[in-house]
Design a protein around this nucleic acid. Structure first.
Length: 476
DNA sequence: GTGGGGGAG
DNA sequence: CGTTCTCCCCCAC
């Protein structure tokens, strides 16, 4: 069901404008992804990854959602949407706060050993604690969180990081997709695995799978551009794109029964690793042979290091991994089809939309990030925790219905924004009229190639805004 | 480099 | 929804 609302575009608010453009871009990207590759997608639009990801959950399949301003609290708007939005989330739902951290925070808020996960097999009946409950805990701040969550093994600055997260702040960069994984692993879990014979059998199976995966993921087939004698006689040339340097065997021993018969759930894994044996890269030997060698020469010795006792153990999981890829090719992707590059090429076009300069853009983003960290809790909800009935659910429903959600982004883009110097662009500039892929196009005539203008009013705009602009004309 | 903890999807 | 199978990053040693 499509339920979208019209948004009055506030051209004096750069944040608002930026979100609208982001929404158009998302719409355009989703359309192309489906038209050209058959994939539907869901996206969230906001000023950082954290909020964008969370808001993307609001309208789930094949849709998109934008978190609208206000993003900061003022006298007029004492409740900014970022805070209101993030507050409704259960603490464990926040990306970056996993099972362990969430449990500690629940204990902190509930002030009691917390209904851990007594009866059930897995996460069980955890009690819901919301972001607002955590953030409004008296005396809580980055330092207190660091004391609670920090310690040996914890990442540097975990306290500040978590504090930022529950304030809707996230400055983590958008990363590049990898073309080759840093690690490949195969694992299986077992109800009961307690004899060496069984282990050997499973190690064989895992080894076969791993070998297949290595070939599928790390082997590059050279498409013989000119069929040499070699390629004719021995088939397509294959070569390793990356060589893992490490082989690792991991097990998860089943925790022994307590005297009272209860199960001590433990996910603890133990592992041993060794340097990757070279024969595993053989492209000539039969897999059977390689697997046999691997199991007896490498894996069984590793296994005996993990489990020196002949018996007595019972494994619930075995994992076999290759890691530490040393790449022949570049580890990181970058085929050229990324959005940053697209924006670079369309820079001239986009400049027309950029009614503020780069510095201001950064400020809009970081304003919330930095303010949020320091923001007094009273700004948002006051000191009293909202009760279920009177505050949260009601207000949140209101928001869900009226303030988020720009599914089918905006219906229009006012011409005031995008009219400007359109005389030197080609006449046929509708999206459909273009010949090539604007993303693929290299260099020169950037303006000409990536600029489109409306046949009705002559407004100039980037490709992804064309649809919205046309809709704007239609509803006039 | 090895082994373990925590987390995402 | 909960569980399984991967994959990732960080840290101490």
């Amino acid at each position: 069901m499509i339920s979208y609302r019209l948004i009055l575009l506030d051209t004096t608010d750069p944040l608002h404008l930026r979100l609208i453009l982001g929404s158009h871009l998302a719409q355009y990207l989703r359309q192309r992804l489906e038209a050209e590759h058959g994939y539907t997608a869901t996206v969230g639009i906001s000023t950082n990854k954290l909020i964008a990801k969370l808001v993307g959950n609001v309208h789930k399949p094949d849709s998109q959602t934008t978190l609208l301003p206000p993003y900061t609290s003022t006298d007029d708007t004492p409740t900014d949407n970022v805070t209101t939005f993030i507050d409704e989330h259960e603490i464990g739902k926040i990306p970056g706060i996993g099972f362990k951290t969430a449990q500690k925070l629940r204990v902190l808020v509930l002030q009691r050993p917390a209904d851990f996960d007594t009866g059930l097999v897995y996460g069980g009946t955890k009690e819901s604690v919301y972001v607002a409950n955590v953030r409004n805990t008296p005396g809580l701040g980055p330092e207190e969180l660091e004391r609670l969550l920090g310690g040996s093994g914890a990442p540097q600055g975990i306290g500040a990081r978590v504090w930022d997260l529950i304030n809707g702040c996230d400055d983590s960069p958008v990363g590049q997709a990898r073309d080759v994984p840093t690690q490949i692993s195969i694992e299986d879990s077992y109800i009961r695995l307690d004899t060496l014979d069984q282990v050997i059998k499973e190690l064989r199976l895992l080894s076969f799978s791993l070998l297949k995966r290595m070939h599928a993921d790390l082997l590059e087939t050279e498409e013989a551009d000119n069929a040499t004698e070699e390629t004719i006689s021995s088939g397509p040339t294959k070569r390793w794109m990356a060589h893992p340097k490490t082989l690792r065997l991991t097990t998860r021993p089943r925790p022994p029964q307590n005297p009272d018969g209860s199960r001590n759930r433990s996910f603890a894994r133990i592992s041993k690793s060794t340097t990757m044996p070279n024969f595993m890269f053989s492209l000539k030997e039969e897999h059977e042979v390689l697997v046999q060698k691997l199991v007896y020469e490498i894996l069984l010795p590793l296994f005996r290091r993990l489990h020196p006792e002949k018996s007595g153990w019972n494994l619930s999981l075995v994992n076999l991994a290759v890691a530490n890829m040393v790449g022949a090719a570049s580890d990181k992707g970058g085929s050229g089809r990324d959005i940053a590059k697209m924006f670079k090429r369309q820079d001239d076009v986009l400049r027309q939309f950029r009614v503020w300069d780069e510095d201001d853009v950064d400020k809009v983003v970081s304003e919330h990030q930095e303010d949020g960290s320091e923001a007094p809790v009273e700004d948002v909800l006051g000191n009293t925790l909202p009760t279920e009935e009177q505050h949260r659910p009601h207000e949140i429903m209101e928001y869900a219905d009226h303030d988020f959600d720009v599914v089918e982004p905006t219906k229009f883009l006012p011409p005031a924004l995008d009219t400007r110097g359109s005389e030197d662009v080609p006449t046929s500039s509708q999206a459909g009229a273009r010949s090539g892929d604007p993303w693929e196009e290299e260099d020169e005539d950037i303006l000409d190639d990536d600029t489109f203008h409306c046949q009705v009013c002559g407004a100039v705009m980037p490709l992804f805004a064309m649809g919205a602009h046309e809709r704007w004309h239609m509803q006039e």
